[in-house]
Amino acid sequence: MDEVLSKLIALHDLDQLLKELESPEYQELGFEVKETRKKELLKRREELVRQIPEQVYRRYERLRKRYGRGIAPVVGGVCMNCFIQLPTAVVSGPDKNQRLETCSNCGIFIYLA
């Protein structure tokens, strides 16, 4: 898997975790969440961001503001952000996820599931 792609996925998963921790539905479940440790997680996010090329990260943040996420899976050839069928050459090549790709319609970074 492309190294930047794997970092973007890790960043996405971390952003989603941080968001979910704030949701009342999750908090109701009563799992242990230490506030001090949450700050450490934010530091780890910064470290992760430093490993991503600046222009890629800027685009990720722009997309996140616009769509609520910067990267989306492609399932069955369909981008799960805009639900448009992507060209076969993009979704079924031998170098699946070996390059950082974006959706040709909405521009979001994509992970080929």
Binding site: I9, A10, H12, D13, L14, Q16, L17, E20, L21, F31, E32, V33, K34, R37, K38, E40, L41, R44, I71, A72, P73, V75, Y111, A113
Partner: peptide, 29 residues
């Protein structure tokens, strides 16, 4: 990695011998 990050903010070991590790990830279908 996502599971360990979740564990880092508080164990999902809820006590009495049981744990419920959990996470979401973009790579899951």
């Amino acid at each position: 990695d996502a599971l360990l990050k979740r564990e880092s903010i508080g164990s999902t070991g809820i006590g009495k011998g049981i744990a419920i590790p959990h996470t979401r990830s973009l790579v899951l279908d």
